[in-house]
Design a protein around this nucleic acid. Sequence first.
RNA 1: GCCCCCAUCGUCUAGUGGCCCAGGACACGGCCCUCUCAAGGCCAAAACAGCGGUUCGAAUCCGCUUGGGGGCACCA
Length: 492
Amino acid sequence: MTTITPVRARFAPSPTGHVHLGSARTALYDYLIAKQTGGQFILRIEDTDRKRLVEGAEEELINSLHWLGIDWDEGPGKDGPYGPYRQSERKEIYQKYARELIEKDAAYYCFCTPERLSQVRQEMQKNKLPPHYDGFCRHLSKAEAEARVKAGEPHVIRFKSPKEGTTVVKDLLRGEITFENATLDDFILVKSDGWALYHLAAIVDDHLMKITHVIRGSEWLPTSPLHHLIWNALGWQEPEWVHLSVFLKPSGKGKMSKREAADLSNDGYSIFIKDLEDLGYLPEAVINWVALMGWSYDDHTEFFTLNDLVEKFSLDRLNPSPAAINFSKLDYFNKEHIKALGNEDLAARIQPFFIKAGYHADLGDLIKITPVIKERITTLDDSVEMCAFLFKDAISHDKEALIIKDKTREETLRFGSDSLEILESVSVWEPAVLEAKFTAYMEAQGLTPRELLSFLREAISGQRVTPPLFECMQVLGKERTIQRLKEALTLI
RNA sequence: GCCCCCAUCGUCUAGUGGCCCAGGACACGGCCCUCUCAAGGCCAAAACAGCGGUUCGAAUCCGCUUGGGGGCACCA
């Protein structure tokens, strides 16, 4: 590592939908590199396309970032020296620089109608050429163009891409990438409604906001030469470019489509941060998981907290190849991070899931069960299914399961009433005491734990799967445990 | 069609010319432990896409092929 200079990194989403894994990872890396160098992480809303805005998307975006624990130093709700941080509030700024580009002859007015443009595109495709603009307005005289603009003729502003030579883009993890200028298009910089497009707006903002590193998806690679050219045309020093690889669907074949995203939810998974939260994943786990998709620390360390990552992340250990999303690995990380949680913390996190399921579980009770469930649940939501019986007023039984395997109804009844007596005789209601009593009883009767305890489990919980039996009895309390066993015995 | 990117076990990856007949993790299978479910322990199976170079030596460097991915909007 050379001398560390503070990095100013920005996460610049457009509020057009849910925050997904890809953007979460980009935001994370931005945040990490900024924090690690003592720099700033900036959140900028790219909302210049007024038609695509989605109601509530910005709010969800902010919530998701907060949930993940990624906080910004400058951005909406947190003013800084380079605001405003919403592009919709910066329209005039972009127009100023668009004019500058025209004056420098690096851009030109174009009066072609959308109809003509699509016609040109079709023509190009028919001739097996890249579907680019044909340059119809590129050579209009400045005087004529200005006159038509003044006359109020609808127009856009296009960048004047060089036609010869090559443009080299330097990417931090891919090295130098060379593009033939002949393959470049004359991109639109400002639309006919006066709003700047990403290509102009992002560059102007990155410059004005003194961004030093731009981390973005590799889908931007094809337009990166244009961006390089615009930076140059404006006479500015461009930032470091980092083009991250895309995420592939779990099969590894192709990008996640709308349809596949929907199919995922049938399996209890999702690529959207909001859903992951609802599903019972920990932000710690999502962060850990997503950080490792495209980055690694060494050949064996996998468990990282956000703070670990701030300390250990580095751009030079990024991996340029696309990564397939692996949800079973997320499950694994979720288990690991749940196990790492303190009992009070875990209890507070599972409580909303109980409440959502209609159980009035109070924190005190939940804290009692967290030690025994923390290594048995994959998601926070799993705790509800596993422990619901503790919070129900009445439970129902599967009568079949109430007969001890390979024993008769009469035998079961006898073991059941003996158990009842044992329970009633216990004065110190603790797992160790209960276990000692029952172990002695089972030995005397020649019963295996599997036989008796499975029966008791069904009797007091109505479930086949629960946390360890004696712990369950403890949380249930002596009275309710006895009550439930009595009820069960009447059903045999 | 054109441009660009990528290429190690099923998946995420380690590996920057000899330490590699390739290491870790998840998932999968088996065994042990075990009151259910987990957790834990042990074991197994599993990869350098192909072909040419360069080199004393290549997973590592170069080229080609193949495969995969991304882009080609008055979206970002």
